[in-house]
Nucleic acid binder design. Structure first.
Lengths: 135, 135
DNA sequence: TTTTTAGTTTGTAATGATTACAAATATATA
DNA sequence: TATATATTTGTAATCATTACAAACTAAAAA
């Protein structure tokens, strides 16, 4: 996705494409590593030394409310952010620490849902060893 | 599970069954509501006004390390605790706020795991409407 | 039983992520 | 250009959790 397309994506969702919001969104799109707010801040402040931590939180909230970014609660210590808003799960490697997406079909979520319940959202987290870290 | 059985469970796992740890474990077993540390504290301090918040955290950590209690990261704002250590998922009702367990088969987790990965743990969270809150 | 030792609890202080807030700045509209 | 609105910024506050050291308890040794 080009910078122009990202700006268009924000406009479409009613989010004014300020340079700061674009920087946050661009970083999330270009680095699908599911960073924490602080990791995003460290990255964007490199290019703009005046960037405020609060602006990162504000931007993440705006992007989330617009449905452009997803918030992950993998560990309860800090939140992680993901610009991939399609249905997918997250695998956390206990060895190298990486967090990778994996595909998830709507039918799989449906088959997990107990009868009588209506699932509107999901968080599917697996942890273990990624292919590069197999013993 | 009786109080005696709970004490025995701690001993088996090498956790000294102090009154404080038993109070925490007993509350978790008798109230499968997936409480936060603070909810546990509020409950146990009722019976022992000298109970310290730190002791709740210490006890929860000891019970967790012994494999008697599970830590949940449903929302990233606070951790929740569960004395049910068998394989299961969690459903969070957006209307009434309840968190309920639902069954999960090892084969279901296996079928989610992408090839090349080894899953050692999982957190399967669904959110939506529970049976009592259907529209 | 007394002494010693290790483990546990407690209260307070520190930490760290996140949010609240108000002033400063930028953008859009009239 | 003037005016209203939205956004950014820095600082201070909040809140869950952890660190720490003193007080306490219980188990082991003498």
């Amino acid at each position: 996705m080009t910078a122009k397309e990202m700006a268009a994506a924000l406009c479409e969702r009613g989010v004014r494409p300020t340079p700061q919001r674009l920087a946050v969104y661009e970083f999330l799109c270009m680095h699908p590593i599911h960073p924490s707010a602080d990791t995003v801040y460290e990255a964007v402040v490199e290019h703009n030394p005046h960037f405020s931590r609060t602006t990162v939180y504000n931007s993440l909230r705006a992007l989330m409310q617009a449905g452009l970014v997803q918030e992950l609660s993998m560990d309860a210590d800090e939140k992680h952010y993901d610009a991939n808003t399609s249905l997918h799960g997250h695998f956390h490697c206990r060895h190298c620490g990486s967090i990778t997406d994996f595909p998830l079909e709507p039918t799989m979520v449906q088959s997990l849902t107990p009868t009588g319940y209506t699932a509107l959202g999901q968080g599917i987290y697996l942890s273990g060893l990624c292919p590069a870290c197999q013993p």
